[in-house]
Each structure stands twice: as C-alpha cells, then as structure tokens.
Nucleic acid binder design. Structure first.
Lengths: 122, 122
DNA sequence: GTAACCAATTACCTCAACGTAACTAACGGA
DNA sequence: TCCGTTAGTTACGTTGAGGTAATTGGTTAC
C-alpha cells in the first residue's frame, strides 16, 4: 500500500503550496469562508455581511476561491442579476480552521491591546 | 456569575479585532508561528528555515508579534549578536490553528492545481 | 589593521492591494 | 420613456507590502 508523502512544503519559496497558503491565510478569505460556512449566500448579502469590503475586492476574492475550487458560483437567469455563492466540499474543509482564526482575533483582542500598550510604553 | 459576551466582531470594519485578524491571517505570520512552535529559535535559523523571507520582513513580522505579546525576544549580551525568539503562552494558542493552515495548503495543493486548470480551460 | 560574524536599521525602489467612481446589461414598473 | 434594480467591469489613484543593498557595532581570528 502506498503512503502519501509530503512532496510539498510551504517553507520552500518556490513551492506552489506557499502561494496557496498566501490565499487562504488572508483576512478577506477568512471572512468570506467563515460567512459562507452558514450556507449559500448571494453577492449582495455577502457584501453587507462583511462590513467595509468593496465590491471589487469581494468579486476578486470570490473569483480566486472559485478558481481554486473552494466556492461554487450559481447564476440565475433573472433580471436584475441574482448570483449565489456556496462553499464546495473542499472549501468547507477550510471553514472550521478559518472560523477558529476569526474567533481567536475576537477573543484575544483585549489581551492583545493590553500587550501592545505595554510594549509601546517601552 | 458573568458570561463573556462577544463584544468584538471581525465583520465590523472598525473593530480592532479585524486588524488583529489581518495580522494572524497572513502567510508570514503563519510560517513564523508554525516554525517557532518547535521551540525557541534564533533569528538566523528562522530566516534559513523560512526560505526566501528577507531580513527586513522577518524583523518586522517578529516585532509585530512581539508587540502583540505572541512572541518573546531573548537578547544575549554576546558578540556577534545572538537573539532568540520564542512563542509566548498566548502565541502558542495560535500554533495549532496556523499549523493547520500550512498543512492544508500542502495537502490540497495538488487538488487546487487541478481545479485551477479546469477553471482556466473555461 | 582588517576581515568575518550576526541582528538590525535605513534608504530607495517596485509592484500588488485596495478604494472610489463611472459605466454596463436587461427587465419590470411608474 | 425613464428609473431602479444587481452583479460585474474598468479606469484611475493612493497606500502598503516587500525586495535589495548599504551600513552599524563590538569582538575574535588572521
């Protein structure tokens, strides 16, 4: 029987997995995937949910995720346009890990702010 | 008894937790914290371990992590300089989540590359 | 003396990320 | 006829991330 060997390493500069890491270790990706974890959602709602994201950045982020197979795009032949986005099975494997990061940021921000003050005071 | 309420949300543009998320959901942070998870390490070794990182970026990343209280800096009064970095207790709570991201990138890059080809072929 | 060592800083440049605003398509409703 | 609707694109400008190279400082080895 064969065993999967770690052919790839993010620590190698030229390894494609590093660029992949750069895409998933990204604040917009984290927020989009976290929100989409709650289920299929249309563009406009996603944009409203993620306060402050511009339409341009949201479009780009979703395109990249779709390209990598993490998100599916559902287009309805309606007018005005109606487009929904959904995590794929692969994308869903990222939901929990990225949710953890979002939660970490929220749960530890108070402590971080204190540390920062202490550091800045020398 | 009191319950911790979610005062903070990364989905709010002006919430400080979002900037915190931006710092931890970052490829350099992910690699530095992952490597430091193996134990205290000096600057030069860290730089060698993370192939392709420039001294400038490594310094900046470590400063930010130190400022937020995720990393401790140990300076030895020697010459040539000897400086070691170590995860704090707080920083260590991030090790596992960020390691997961690195592993994800490595383990799914093959599938991602296939998806990407399929997408680019229309 | 001077070269090598290591962590760090600085100046300078380039390029990617991001924001804003204008514009498009196609239909239903006033 | 004109307007509002939604997802998306494009052009343009600004900011920030990041690379490279030069420089610092105090020892030890030559």
């Amino acid at each position: 029987m064969s065993q999967t060997v770690p052919d790839w390493s993010v620590l190698a500069a030229s390894c494609p997995s590093r660029k992949s890491l750069a895409r998933i270790a990204n604040k917009w990706t984290a927020m989009v995937v976290t929100v989409l974890g709650n289920g299929r959602m249309r563009f406009g709602d996603l944009k409203q949910e993620i306060d402050g994201i511009s339409g341009k950045v949201l479009t780009e982020t979703l395109r990249d995720l779709e390209r990598d197979g993490l998100v599916t795009r559902h287009v309805y032949a309606e007018v005005p346009p109606r487009v929904e986005y959904e995590l794929t099975e692969l994308g869903f494997t990222l939901h929990e890990p990225l949710l953890v990061l979002c939660r970490w940021a929220e749960q530890h921000i108070a402590e971080v702010l204190v540390n920062r003050e202490r550091y800045d005071a020398r």
